[in-house]
Write a protein that binds this DNA or RNA. Structure first.
Lengths: 128, 128
DNA sequence: GCTTGACCTGGAGCGCGCTCCAGGTTGGAG
DNA sequence: CTCCAACCTGGAGCGCGCTCCAGGTCAAGC
């Protein structure tokens, strides 16, 4: 149930081995277990963190902020308010990001439509 | 109507002066006009390109691909099919990007909800 | 016991997209 | 004519997030 070799953790999380080591090195993952010989053993809990990191990374959170979040979580229950706030601020940024992406996607689609309509007028400057 | 000083072009495009120079240096902007003394003069057409570059950049297109598009446009009418295809492929990637962003945003919102619901069970591993 | 592939460490290197700098030139206001 | 802010060039440097490397260790299968 728990206790994954590095390669298995990489497969399940979608992060590379190097990235897993890197995340530990910079303090995103802390206290990763080891075998007596020193090889890493990832738990389900670690995997849960990795899922969260993927979510935050895919939504554009800088690593420094993920570190902060992880540190707060390690600091205990009394940091829940701050963690909550951190995630909410991030969510707001993501919403803005989604709006911008949608807007620029619409521009792109409009641009594409000029290549598809009969052969008419070139509306915006060059690049028709 | 046309003929903007660098600072004005920067203001209107939202790119920094350094970025405008950089874009010219790497061949995104070509044949930017100059005064007799060598200072740049940006045209409405240049501004149009910059608007396009911002759209492509904001949607995550790598600069190498923007260069390719710009070069094709300079190469003339017979490249319209290829340009169209390039933009369509990019649009498809943007759609995928939007889906991923939405999915991860939903995860994030779910995570946030655990901080907001009464005080119940910690569903996903740690980081509650 | 031996082999072999997965794993370890510390540290250097990379790819991207700018950003900054030094040292010199330009050009419009007064 | 003088001044000074805006501009020029070539090239170095940066911040991010990994990614790769050398040289060595571990552990499961035969």
């Amino acid at each position: 149930m728990s206790g994954y070799a590095p390669s298995e953790a990489a497969r399940r999380s979608g992060f590379s081995l190097d990235t897993l080591r890197y995340y530990e090195k910079i303090g995103l993952l802390a206290d990763v277990e080891r075998t007596s010989g020193g090889q890493r053993v990832f738990t389900d809990d670690d995997l849960g963190w990795l899922v969260l990191f993927r979510c935050l990374r895919d939504t554009g959170m800088p690593i420094a902020q993920m570190r902060r979040y992880a540190q707060l979580a390690r600091d205990g229950e009394h940091t829940t308010d701050e963690r909550h706030e951190l995630l909410c601020h991030h969510a707001a940024r993501v919403e803005e990001q989604m709006r911008l992406l949608q807007r620029q996607y619409d521009h792109l689609r409009e641009k594409i439509s000029f290549y598809e309509r009969p052969s008419g007028t070139a509306a915006g400057s060059e690049a028709g």
